[in-house]
Design a protein around this nucleic acid. Sequence first.
DNA 1: GATAATAGTGAACAATGTGTACGGTAACGT
DNA 2: ACGTTACCGTACACATTGTTCACTATTATC
Lengths: 187, 187
Amino acid sequence: MDRRQRKTKEAIFKAFIELLSEKNVSQITVGEIIKRADIGRATFYAHFETKDFLLKALCEELFCHIFDATGHVENNHRHIFNCNAPDSVFLHLFQHLANNDNQILELLACENNDLFLRYFKTELSKLLEAMPELFTHSKTSELPHSFWVNHLTSTFVETVRWWVGHKREQSPEEITKFFYAAIGIIQ
Amino acid sequence: MDRRQRKTKEAIFKAFIELLSEKNVSQITVGEIIKRADIGRATFYAHFETKDFLLKALCEELFCHIFDATGHVENNHRHIFNCNAPDSVFLHLFQHLANNDNQILELLACENNDLFLRYFKTELSKLLEAMPELFTHSKTSELPHSFWVNHLTSTFVETVRWWVGHKREQSPEEITKFFYAAIGIIQ
DNA sequence: GATAATAGTGAACAATGTGTACGGTAACGT
DNA sequence: ACGTTACCGTACACATTGTTCACTATTATC
């Protein structure tokens, strides 16, 4: 990809992330984004059809690489699926978040976190669906499969929300224990 | 209140609710609302400062009366706090929802349900905080109070989301059991 | 039923934001 | 050095917002 394209794309994302931590999505205008990114109006629209598409692209940028199932290693970072200990996916996720790749913590703590947490939940659901060891618990037989998946994912995402909302005072290990306690599985 | 005011307010709410079940909030314009409500532009702004204030008013209309703690009876409907069996608040809430007061089910099932479920969660939190019997479980001692409250409320709200997302095939009694199973309390 | 207060009408408006078009300029990969 | 590609900036048509105002209709109250 052309270096210029990369640069402007990064500038747009950077400006957008900054604005997202300052105000609500609906209050952010394209004019503000291009001013802060210091690019021309036409350039913005050459990259993103609308503001909504930019938001979608940002979400994909943030989550899809975290949950990328291809399994290849980049930047010394193993993808979730490639971890040696599949049982501690949740711990890995918390550690991953604590590293604050892609300034994701800022976004998860900001006013618009709903948006990102929803995206998070969707991606996480796909991941959990493929983990049979999560469905051996006694509860599982009493409850519909999709209910249990939804409960697991939303409990995890809500744990993340609580964690970042409380300044992440717990270590990834501690918060993982909280999560397991909440869903009633003793790790 | 003047009959005219009541009528236009109802017309605005009705039009807004209709539009909400058709498209996203951000895609709804004031022009559409007044066209469907068949009122003048100035009239709309005489009632609501902006579209966001209308949304807020709608949420309050929907939830505050459900969670109203004043305890008085209106329209043959007992408020949550006034129920004889405080242990089954959750069952009462599901029954309340199933009755579809204020067309709330349509809104909880629509594209914008995030919005209403968040509001729901906020109000429910306040209610649960005041119910000491929910904090006697063994889990509670292991976990921070606010974590447990957040877990309870979000599990309930997510159960509602799952329920309405699956066409409410379960009776209020059944779905209440699911909820208790999820949080690990045997009722 | 007459009256004053209140609410709604509809059109017009400035202000702001959106998305597109275009000729000119600068940076890119090869 | 070359053709290609991306960016610039200005301008534009268009939609939406929120306000104003003179006028009309409805209301509660006497």
